[in-house]
């Protein structure tokens, strides 16, 4: 199944994704403010199954987990970026949101339709017909994605013990 692309530039930080001034709100309300300082209509236009493609250092800044969590809440199924803020990267996998590093991000534009293979990192740009490459997710993080995140992973592992 292909996904519609939202394209952003470099250094999309956690204050842009989950603004501190709204951090006390319930997740669904906080999500309405996601990315509003650079794209006020994002939260109302994003659809279930969409994918974000961005440049360097996506998610830099705070450890606030709400940054990947609001993306998930809004229906984003993966983020593809040239690089990620380190804490955001860990947080995304812990929540079951795949974060794919790809230097081919320049070959994907807003509103393109793409297909992403989480296991191999292969990206097919349906709109342009190009096959693109993303880095393979490390095994330990792929395990988290397959479990649906760290909480379900712990749930099943603690139960097994």
């Amino acid at each position: 199944m292909s996904s519609r692309v939202w394209k952003f530039g470099d250094d999309i930080n956690t204050d842009i994704l989950a603004p501190g001034i709204y951090i006390k709100l319930p997740l669904n309300e906080l999500a309405q403010h996601c990315l509003e300082s650079i794209d006020p209509s994002f939260a109302s236009r994003v659809c279930e199954g969409d994918i974000i493609v961005a440049g360097n250092n996506f998610g830099m800044g705070s450890s606030r987990e709400q940054a990947p969590q609001v993306l998930k809440e809004l229906g984003i199924t993966a983020v593809i970026a040239a690089s990620f803020g380190g804490i955001f990267y860990r947080n995304a996998f812990n929540l079951g949101l795949p974060a794919i590093i790809s230097k081919d991000f320049t070959k994907i534009a807003a509103d393109h339709q793409i297909e992403l293979d989480i296991k191999t990192g292969r990206i097919c740009n349906i709109t342009t017909g190009q096959d693109l490459v993303g880095e393979k997710i490390p095994e330990n993080l792929l395990t988290l994605i397959e479990a649906g995140g760290l909480v379900p992973y712990l749930e099943s592992n603690l139960n097994n013990n």
């Binding site: 450890s63 606030r64 987990e65 804490i87 860990r90 947080n91 812990n94 929540l95 995140g149 760290l150 909480v151 712990l154 603690l158």
Partner: peptide, 14 residues
């Protein structure tokens, strides 16, 4: 180093 809340959950439990 800094980690997020679910990561911290893993630390607090294990």
């Amino acid at each position: 180093f800094g980690i997020g809340a679910t990561d911290m959950l893993g630390v607090l439990v294990t």
